[in-house]
């Protein structure tokens, strides 16, 4: 068993364990923090799979921006910081059964489909910033530009949504809400 394999197993177990904690912990802020662990482990797995640039982007955007956004959201919605008794709905068992069903289905499919196929990482081209940049701006320019338009649309949508006013917001103080909306937009 090579070093890569050992590292993969360790990182994989960390990702799975922290992911389970993300969906099961009773403390909401802890869930966000456990999500950081999962995403970081996945970034490590990207590194192992010769996707260097994707791994750094994962760290930057996911671990950095997305988790911070989620934490902001938790705070802006005045989520309690301590453990809560009611973070899950009443239908835990049916939901778990569905999740197990999905896991069994997918796992059976991939394991049965790729048994005996080796992933040879020795001669793989490492997806460094240079190669990835060349690839994106030579081969994938059009999807890249389309994606930029999508981002712009998402930005506009977020602004429009945050400027929506409802009738029952008067009693909660509008200036504060407007400030919150600007925070979200940023």
């Amino acid at each position: 068993m090579s070093v890569v394999e050992v590292l993969f197993l360790l990182l994989g177990l960390a990702a799975l364990g922290s992911a389970l904690l993300v969906v099961s912990t009773k403390n909401m802020v802890h869930a966000a923090l456990w999500l950081v662990v999962t995403l970081a482990s996945i970034a490590g797995i990207y590194l192992l799979l010769a996707a260097e640039f994707v791994a750094w982007v994962q760290v930057l955007i996911y671990v950095g921006a997305v988790v911070v956004l989620l934490l902001f959201a938790l705070m802006l919605t005045r989520a309690p910081t301590g453990p809560q008794p009611d973070t899950t709905v009443a239908r835990v068992l049916p939901a778990a059964a569905v999740a197990v069903l999905v896991a069994a289905l997918l796992a059976t499919t991939v394991v049965a489909g790729f048994t005996g196929v080796r992933l040879d990482l020795d001669g793989a081209v490492v997806g460094s910033a240079a190669t990835t940049g060349e690839t994106i701006f030579e081969k994938w320019v059009l999807p890249f530009e389309v994606l930029s338009v999508l981002l712009l649309a998402a930005l506009v949508g977020a602004i429009v949504l945050s400027r929506l006013r409802t009738d029952d917001t008067e009693d909660r103080g509008r200036p504060r809400e407007q400030r919150d909306a600007q925070e979200v937009r940023r």
């Binding site: 890569v4 993969f8 197993l9 994989g12 990702a15 799975l16 797995i45 796992a107 790729f114």
Partner: peptide
Amino acid sequence: MPLWWPLLLA
């Protein structure tokens, strides 16, 4: 590394 390890993880 067998290919199904990352696939199973996913």
